[in-house]
Design a protein around this nucleic acid. Structure first.
Lengths: 115, 115
DNA sequence: ATCGTATTCAACCTTTCGGTTAATCAACGG
DNA sequence: CCGTTGATTAACCGAAAGGTTGAATACGAT
């Protein structure tokens, strides 16, 4: 696992358990035990998942007596969104160029089916 | 690595080499050798990366004589975008509810700083 | 002080990942 | 047919993921 921001985020999201945890947290804060409840794996495994999510910046944790409430942090998701958008932009530019080129070579053609 | 669509996509994106390959492909189709050129790793390693990307549906491959040109496929990226959006929606709903609740309890308060 | 609850740390195991090299397959050009 | 070029497959390796169990830590309650 590489150590850059985006890689950590994607790697953290590449697990259904962790995504389910995030989904739960999108409804509000929760403790480790609460988060673990729906799953068939040990509490320690959940704790590890939380550490992964925390390292990726996708959650942060507070302190309330012996509980460590987790909350969702959306900044890394925004980063992913932006990365994808930047992407789609380039891709569309490429189609635009392609279409212009085709129009140049076949001036009669009016459009191009992308599918 | 779990076997669902989203997990495969995220896992495929969680590697800088693979993201660089996608970036290159966003400029247009390329052969395996062309894709491998910027990297210090073996052609076989690149071939493996391409297989991962293909399994995730992020690229597709054609046939042109002995070359296997790769092209970007954006459907999985769209899926990721939608997943994140659905997410942010829930999260914002939650803030809205929270804000309403706060206004109910402290009718004088006008707003809440999210940062 | 002690007990119980919430959570993490540590050690271990098995599977997967990302890389290597060597061998193989596929298509073209003489 | 033979050699070359492009790409994949196979066998292997070290490191990391994701899980387990068992011990430790951090608090609150009694």
């Amino acid at each position: 696992m590489p150590d850059d921001e985006l890689s950590r985020t994607f790697a953290a999201l590449a697990d259904p358990t962790r995504r389910a945890i995030l989904a739960r947290l999108s409804e509000g804060e929760a403790t480790v035990n609460e988060l673990a409840e729906p799953f068939d794996i040990s509490l320690q495994a959940i704790s590890k998942h939380l550490k992964v999510l925390e390292r990726a910046g996708l959650i942060s944790r507070g302190r309330d007596a012996q509980w460590r409430p987790c909350r969702l942090e959306t900044a890394p998701l925004d980063a992913v969104s932006h990365w994808i958008d930047r992407y789609r932009e380039r891709w569309n530019d490429r189609f635009d160029r392609l279409e212009r080129e085709i129009r140049r070579v076949h001036p009669g053609k009016e459009g191009l089916e992308h599918g």
